[in-house]
């Protein structure tokens, strides 16, 4: 703040005070402005309850009630359900297509088709390898990008904050909501692929990429593991989308920003000269779920991926928090 500004401000104030005193002497009761420091805030002794209603008490389940409300909104919104339906339809299409191709000569079959034809469970992984490239990230970006910007655009944000939802609390709820949606998207793909696979292809022992054969239950366990991993990746992407969402009042902007970022990352991955960059790109880690199909499971790669997801999540959420708690809500 410049000195000039301060001087003008106080000058104006003095002038105003003068006119006010002349017109109608008045005094602001009991307000003692103090410099804002953490310590004064902490040292503040509890004031006796002012006259009026009994002091409101924070209800213990209030956070979960707000999260429930948020989830209800997300999972009742037709747009979000449509996206779940689309990602859920892809494994069915892939399964039917593979079934029709796989009916032909065995020699023409590539490894992927052959492995699906050989075992129903592989359809899940094949579906994931298609969907994690763009479609699943888009679904998550829509919900994440809409989270804050959507409320701001509709004007409901001001009423939520006046309720008071609390900014940090609302941000936490919004993020958890995206996490749940990201896992829902992942689970829908897995379940749809699993059911389609079981209907169209033989069930039984699963052949891993390493050529090892494991029992069906082990295969299901590996699907669960991949769902956990991809879901975490989607959550990290959701955090990025939520962060972008705090910078705009136009949800489409935040959504498009996230999707463009994903596409750009996929393009960068294809450029060989930029290979050193690849380990740090979030979308590049989504496809590492294939580590669960190796024997032994490549836990190192999975953990590397999870730490990248964690880093993106922490960084994005802290940016979102810094932005959102300091933002003037003018919509």
């Amino acid at each position: 703040m410049s000195t000039a500004e301060t001087t003008t401000g106080s000058a104006a104030e003095t002038a105003q005070t003068a006119t006010r005193t002349a017109r109608q002497p008045r005094r602001t009761p009991g307000l003692v402005p103090v410099a804002e420091t953490l310590s004064t805030a902490e040292r503040r002794t509890p004031e006796p309850a002012p006259p009026g209603l009994p002091p409101p008490v924070r209800r213990p389940g209030a956070f979960w009630r707000l999260l429930g409300s948020e989830l209800g909104l997300t999972f009742r919104r037709p747009r979000n359900l449509a996206m779940l339906a689309v990602v859920g339809a892809v494994p069915i299409l892939v399964g039917v297509a593979l079934r029709m191709v796989g009916g032909g000569d065995d020699d023409g079959m590539g490894g992927m088709i052959a492995s699906v034809a050989g075992n129903s469970l592989m359809l899940t992984f094949v579906s994931f390898s298609f969907l994690t490239l763009l479609l699943m990230p888009v679904a998550v970006a829509v919900v994440g990008g809409d989270s804050i910007a959507g409320e701001a655009g509709a004007g409901t944000l001001r009423y939520l904050l006046a309720a008071p939802a609390g900014r940090t609390r609302l941000l936490a709820v919004k993020f958890l909501n995206v996490v749940v949606y990201g896992y829902a998207v992942t689970a829908v793909v897995a379940l749809s692929a699993l059911v389609t696979g079981l209907l169209l292809f033989p069930a039984g022992d699963v052949t891993l990429l390493s050529g090892t054969t494991v029992p069906l239950t082990d295969g299901l366990l590996r699907i669960a593991l991949s769902v956990g991993y991809i879901g975490a990746g989607m959550a990290a992407l959701g955090a990025v989308a939520v962060a972008l969402s705090t910078f705009t009042e136009v949800p489409v902007g935040a959504i498009a920003g996230t999707v463009v970022a994903v596409v750009v990352c996929q393009v960068l991955r294809a450029i060989p000269d930029l290979a050193p960059l690849e380990p740090y790109l979030l979308p590049a880690r989504f496809t590492s779920f294939d580590s669960v199909l190796r024997d032994p499971i490549d836990t190192g790669t999975l953990l590397d991926g999870l730490s990248v997801f964690g880093a993106y999540t922490v960084l994005s959420l802290s940016v979102a928090w810094a932005r959102f708690t300091g933002k003037d809500i003018t919509s």
């Binding site: 924070r58 209800r59 389940g61 009630r65 409300s69 009423y159 939520l160 309720a163 609302l170």
Partner: peptide, 11 residues
Amino acid sequence: RFDAADPTASA
């Protein structure tokens, strides 16, 4: 929805 946002409101 707005009632849920108030941490002091009873469900």
